[in-house]
């Protein structure tokens, strides 16, 4: 699997805002068994200084995975999605995501390599509010497995 290395450094246009809903956070928290009241009860979150329920640490993947289609489905880059496995994932927080946030993603391709017949693609997604407040930076490395 050979990915086009000339894509390194490419930044894509900001995605349409994602409206973070209280019930979506509750649904995600329930799905991972996270019972802390701050994920479910706005009063509990406010007691910790947040405007509404906050999201568990890996919640932003809901937003960034949808945003990354911009890259994965870019025909010029040449990713075969059926051969993709998840390599690395990292979140660097400015603050937790909270219900009511309107989040915009800016995707940048940081690294494209080919090793042992496999393609490796590292993307950074800067997640900020529509008003421009930085919330979290998300790195994701995917491996596009070669035809063995």
């Amino acid at each position: 699997m050979s990915l086009d290395p000339s894509f390194v450094g490419r930044t894509y246009p900001p995605t349409a805002p994602y409206q973070v809903g209280r019930e979506k956070i509750r649904e995600f928290a329930t799905a991972i068994g996270a019972t802390d009241p701050a994920y479910h009860d706005p009063e509990a979150a406010r007691a910790l200084g947040h405007p509404d329920v906050i999201a568990p640490p890996t919640f932003p993947v809901v937003v960034t995975m949808a945003a990354s289609r911009q890259i994965i489905e870019d025909p010029a880059l040449g990713v075969d999605y059926s051969r993709v496995v998840h390599g690395d994932q990292r979140f660097a927080y400015t603050r937790p995501v909270a219900a009511g946030d309107e989040l915009v993603c800016v995707n940048t391709i940081e690294e494209v390599t080919t090793r042992g017949g496999h393609g490796f693609l590292t993307t950074r997604t800067d997640v900020s509010t529509a008003a421009g407040e930085q919330v979290v930076a998300v790195w994701s490395k995917i491996v596009v497995r070669g035809e063995a």
Binding site: A34, L48, H50, P57, V85, D88, F91, Y93, P96
Partner: peptide, 25 residues
């Protein structure tokens, strides 16, 4: 990774404790 995140916030004692979190699968 989400389950590990639960473990991490439980150890930290706060649901909003995580500043940086990364793994390799």
């Amino acid at each position: 990774m989400a389950l590990v995140g639960r473990a991490v916030t439980a150890w930290a004692g706060a649901p909003d404790a995580v500043v940086d979190f990364g793994v390799r699968f």
